[in-house]
Design a protein around this nucleic acid. Structure first.
Lengths: 337, 337
DNA sequence: CATCGCTTTTGAAACCTTTCACTGACAGGA
DNA sequence: TCCTGTCAGTGAAAGGTTTCAAAAGCGATG
């Protein structure tokens, strides 16, 4: 029965009706008499008919998918953002595909090219470089793009992000409140916009508290991973007692978890000898052996909003670009008690 | 210049050549004279021409993508498997799209239907129910399917998995070696094939060591999450001293991390009062405050192999289905010292 | 100049679906 | 009986790309 790739034509012939009728069964079943419809449907099942989405799309001009080009599929933060997007896509009866750029510009470019050729409804992206010109070209040619968790210098399309300066500020204010007067800021590279902003917020809060800038120690890392967090911990241990900070603000939770592990492993108590605060509030932060204080970003909300912006842009002819900024929130736990 | 959706026809007209020549520039540039090629390419850039992948695919009959329908995009285990698939897809110059079924059969079905309509080269899937008949239908109609990290009762297509009975055995043998004579097995629900197999391996190892089955305490959980791990820890604390196990084997790392957190938080030392062993060896296992002993699965390898099987099936006419089983490996760390 | 061999270019057909103006058939009303 | 309106079904056209046989162009050779 099952025929390799039966088409509407085959179905029509086998059911003794015209092409148009088969198409109507598929797309407007109410315009076909019940008896005919049933016969056609039976034939479709027998022949193993599967609609050819390429042909349909060619005719329709647009696809039924949304795409998210994610920066690092292994980072729980991004998978949560993706879950938010997925929710919104579900509501709009679109399906979401994830593409992983793994922080590599060449992979990102390849994915973008294919997505544009596929005429996806819209592209959500956390780009390797938010100011890359390739994004402009694609947007100008008509595919809606929304930048997620990054901002651009020129505001020529929608972006959704979180106020990272405020986040850095919240973290340091919290530590100052707890009485810390010598604090490390751990993170890098500062070429990443987020890292830069969080540092800036940290410095501003420190200055506002009237503290000496020299007592806010910046500890640069090469990446934001657990391993880098451990190595930062070793560098911290190496400092002489009086120069050693009593607290550390890590610009993401992976760093914080690494630092936490290294500290406990080398016999220091957290928060007694070293208070630690992270950023992102990923699920593993609350689950750490010493539950981690962290700056929470509304990541699900971030994804949901980004998706609704891209949908608006693709459907509303007089769409206006927006820059949505969310507010981060401090979640205090045992690591800074 | 930029025209909304320029087609090869528009390019041909603007460059003063025929359709066929434009197509040749795109697909066989060597057959076009340098001067013509250059002119056509310039016009394409001016017009903002973007190849219509639907039309191309309609003609070609197949697409350039591979899809992985992942069970839970938030679980680091699966993102690592996906990274392995991605590697192999890259090598074959295919692009990989990820679809998240989020453990829901309806979402899985929707994704599968669309992927089949899109005529993807192949589908990799960690299914909600490996024995679901929908998979057979799709495979029978000609889309190669490979089941990842699950096995099927009927071996009618390729599967790639890890020997979970052996994994359970390794974990319990390790604990017995360390002198434990009263051990908890934490996990569930046992309707999941993997969980069932790991339990079975654990029991077999226990029996082989000549120990009393009553001293292998099974602690069922409703899901395999950090929160469930914590709650299992509370139940464990509630047991009277002599009945309380000295070690726990958790059937995945999320459970183990939750149990670890709860134990330390309530003042028990690990591994002194309770040794803990997990399963999967996700990155956060090594990074826990007490580094976690775990059973490692070759997850990258798993993905890579699955991708190469699906590619083989889609290209080699006399492909034979294979059931590949990998061997897990114990990674001993401080939590079972 | 005719012929040959080679490279470059052409134009039509094919891929499969959807749409839409149209035909037939039939029932009800005048 | 004739007309009108409704409903079911029809068939051709369109959408953009690739392929392939055939044509054209062109320099060299006899």
């Amino acid at each position: 029965m099952t025929v390799r790739n039966a088409s509407v034509k085959d179905v029509a012939a086998a059911a003794g009706v015209s092409l148009g009728t088969v198409s109507n069964v598929l797309n407007r079943p109410d315009r076909v008499s019940p008896s005919t419809r049933e016969r056609v449907e039976r034939v479709m099942a027998e022949l193993g008919f599967v609609r050819n989405e390429s042909a349909r799309q060619l005719r329709a001009g647009k696809s039924r998918t949304l795409a998210y080009v994610v920066l690092d599929a292994g980072n729980p933060f991004f998978t949560d953002v993706a879950a938010g997007i997925d929710d919104a896509a579900d509501d709009a009866a679109l399906s979401l595909v994830l593409c992983n750029s793994a922080n590599r510009a060449d992979r990102e470019a390849a994915h973008l090219a294919l997505l544009e050729q596929q005429r996806v409804q819209g592209i959500l992206i956390t780009p390797v470089d938010p100011d890359a010109v390739a994004l402009d070209l694609i947007a100008r040619r008509g595919t809606p793009i929304v930048v997620v968790d990054r901002t651009r210098r020129v505001e020529d399309f929608c972006t959704v992000s979180v106020d990272d300066v405020l986040g850095g500020r919240l973290a340091v204010e919290h530590l100052v409140d707890r009485g810390h007067r010598r604090v490390a800021v751990v993170g890098g590279p500062t070429t990443i916009g987020q890292v830069h902003d969080r540092y800036a917020g940290a410095r501003a809060a420190w200055a506002d508290a009237g503290l000496d800038p020299d007592d806010l120690v910046e500890l640069a890392t090469e990446a934001m991973t657990v391993a880098e967090g451990r190595s930062a911990g070793e560098r911290l241990s190496g400092l002489p007692g009086r120069r050693r900070p009593t607290a550390a603000f890590c610009v993401n939770d992976l760093l914080a978890l690494g630092l936490l592990q290294q500290s406990i492993g080398s016999g220091r108590s957290v928060p007694g000898d070293l208070a630690i605060i992270g950023y992102d509030d990923i699920e593993f932060a609350a689950a750490a052996a010493v539950p981690l204080t962290s700056v929470r970003q509304p990541r699900h909300q971030l994804g949901r909003t980004a998706a609704s912006l891209v949908l608006d842009e693709s459907s509303d002819p007089d769409h206006r670009h927006q820059q949505v900024t969310f507010t981060p929130e401090l979640v205090a736990r045992a690591s800074t008690l």
